[in-house]
Design a protein around this nucleic acid. Structure first.
Lengths: 199, 199
DNA sequence: GTTGTTGAAATTGTTGACAATAGACAATTG
DNA sequence: CAATTGTCTATTGTCAACAATTTCAACAAC
């Protein structure tokens, strides 16, 4: 986990994690002044961070009123989002199979072992982080990572919510299945596993 | 055209238009101080606007250095973007055909007549504005506009560049063709025309 | 010649004070 | 009593000053 040099990134990462892990529920208002004292900094960087998160779809902003944590997407919107994510990540995987750069496989293996532990543990924030990191690794590989900024806000808007043990290990197994297919060079299988994993 | 209450939105709209219409070329650095004096306001709202545009993909930000107008997407990225736009807008059109709300048709007809004039004229900013407005109208219709925030950054990242007369009237005709199919209730034809229009 | 160092200029990052606005609630009016 | 108007407070919007960082050129050391 890279630590940002500037405050706005630190604040944004922190809030992003708390929202995604369900510690701050949809509808909750976030006040600049409150956050400023909570983080012990001024309102400036807080404003920047909130703007970031708003553009990422995690917050909903109303001029002169402030921001609140956005609601989860409607079924219709989620359906579209799923298609978009599949399109992006499948494109990335397809691009990878053209080169089969082993560097990615190594990074995915590393991520997998960490993810396994996290899924067994109780830190949901960690689970979220590693799950996103897995998919980001895949997306980063293609076309010098040009797809990342396209992918991130779409991914975030899914508001992936994790429920205990049951799902988590299943999620790990799906990740593992994708990586296994990539190791074996079976493109169709990898793409199919990816498609089934994104729901 | 709605005028924003706060400065940051005004600045963002203004810069967005200038970038999309090619008045500010890719790679051009944008300095906060310069813009502040140019607009006659302080750096605060400028910062906010630049952050907006960065998240929209029009600018590229480097910490402690500043922002520059982003480069046009690579062929690979553009290819993905085209797929995503088609997915979103096609979903919206499909949703419209379930209701066939005539309000949209009226708005599209209005937009078309304005667009026709603009394509004949010389104000590229106006052309960009109306072209985006057309597609936004379509996207806004579905699911209470929930897709708009998903769609906008993807649309903007295409860096649609317009070349003189030839293309413009062709673009108008394609818009008109889509609307014609919708008026006639021919869903397949509308979707096909839309798909061919987004390239 | 190449490489490292240093310092000044330009630029962004951060801060605290002040202005403007929205929303709630009380006062007023018909 | 309903509707409107006024006022107050919490909150965001804006500003100008200051701090930190990057960049680049001049210059020294090897």
């Amino acid at each position: 986990m890279k630590l940002a040099a500037n405050l706005q990134e630190q604040v944004a990462s922190h809030l992003r994690r708390r929202i995604l892990s369900g510690q701050i529920l949809p509808g909750t208002p976030l006040r600049e002044q409150n956050l400023a004292v909570e983080f012990g900094i001024s309102r400036g960087p807080i404003r920047d961070a909130l703007l970031h998160l708003t553009k990422e779809g995690l917050l909903l902003a109303k001029p002169n009123v402030g921001v609140r944590v956005a609601a989860e997407p409607s079924a219709f919107k989620r359906h579209v989002i799923v298609h978009l994510r599949r399109e992006i990540e499948a494109s990335a995987v397809t691009a990878w199979f053209a080169t089969r750069d082993p560097a990615l496989l190594k990074r995915l293996d590393d991520n997998l072992s960490q993810y396994k532990d996290a899924c067994g543990g109780s830190d949901l924030g960690q689970v979220v982080e590693l799950d996103m990191a897995f998919h980001r690794l895949v997306v980063e590989t293609a076309d010098q990572g040009s797809l990342v900024d396209l992918w991130q806000p779409i991914m975030l808007r899914m508001f992936l919510r994790y429920s205990r043990h049951r799902d988590l290990m299943e999620s790990y197994n799906e990740h593992a299945g994708i990586v296994r297919a990539m190791h074996a060079g079976r493109e169709w299988e990898a793409l199919e596993a990816l498609k089934l994993h994104i729901v």
